[in-house]
């Protein structure tokens, strides 16, 4: 039996809940990309807050807060059936015991770890890579992350820019993080909501000057630089424009 859900994390938790309480799932898929198959039957699982909350509590109880937050991070990977990786991982840990979460070389666990690591690495990178520019009373930044990491960087930026109003725009997913006074919200954006302007900013010019004068000439090493700042991140970085 395949389960399909609405694409939210709550929906996924409900699928996991049904997997354990009703009928075990052979796979979990997002509703909009699910391809019907002759041999597999499928069932649509509605998002119900009560079940999602219950499942979340159980995950925390059996696997600990660290692993349950890793499950959320793996969900944000979004590609290559991340849901199925979570399903198999949770299934394994519930059946064999929570210590299996540390069995890193087990194929199911290593697939899970691998996705978590990628999402975490990108989250850490974007904490440094977001570049704001002044846009009216807002500080605006556009980013193109590979994974859906906006919700993971929210706390950091909301806390740091407590007195400012900031918008971080995930252009690939057309979604924005809006923060002020220490709180943040994620909202979907319509095309054309924000002007794509690039006013020449004196501070940006200062920053570029600094960036050009800080390397030591005898140690110039573009290859090393590229390994730290891969080209795909550079289109959003002021100093590389």
């Amino acid at each position: 039996m395949d389960y399909i859900y609405d694409g939210t994390f709550e929906g996924l938790l409900c699928c996991l809940y049904c997997n354990f309480s009703k009928e075990s799932a052979s796979g979990i898929y997002k509703k909009e990309i699910y391809q019907r198959h002759m041999l597999n039957s499928f069932k649509e699982i509605p998002s119900i807050e009560k079940y999602a909350y219950y499942m979340d509590q159980k995950l925390k109880q059996y696997l600990g807060t660290l692993v349950s937050s890793q499950i959320y991070q793996c969900f944000l990977y979004e590609k290559e059936g991340a849901e199925n990786i979570i399903l198999r991982f949770v299934d394994l840990c519930f059946k064999k015991g929570s210590k299996y979460a540390g069995f890193h070389t087990h194929p199911i666990v290593s697939a899970f770890d691998d996705r978590v690591r990628k999402v975490k690495n990108e989250t850490h990178k974007y904490v440094g890579y977001v570049r704001f520019s002044q846009m009216g009373e807002y500080l605006y930044s556009s980013i193109h992350p590979e994974y859906n990491i906006l919700s993971l960087i929210g706390d950091h930026f909301a806390d740091r820019y407590n007195g400012e109003k900031i918008i971080i725009h995930d252009v690939t997913r057309n979604c924005a993080l809006v923060a002020s006074c220490g709180d943040f919200l994620l909202i979907p954006l319509q095309n054309g909501d924000l002007p794509e302007d690039a006013k020449s900013d004196f501070v940006a010019k200062l920053w570029k000057t600094y960036f050009d004068h800080i390397p030591i000439k005898d140690r110039i090493n573009p290859k090393l630089q590229k390994s730290f700042v891969p080209l795909k991140y550079r289109k959003d970085l002021t100093e590389f424009k």
Binding site: V127, G128, N162, P215, I216, R219, I220, Q225
Partner: peptide
């Protein structure tokens, strides 16, 4: 952060970019 003003520090440290010499 402390209510007013700007800024926080993180124990793990954050690199914002890398210069042409890879530092």
């Amino acid at each position: 952060s402390k209510g007013k003003g700007i800024g926080s520090t993180r124990s793990f440290g954050i690199c914002h970019t890398w210069a042409a010499d890879g530092r």
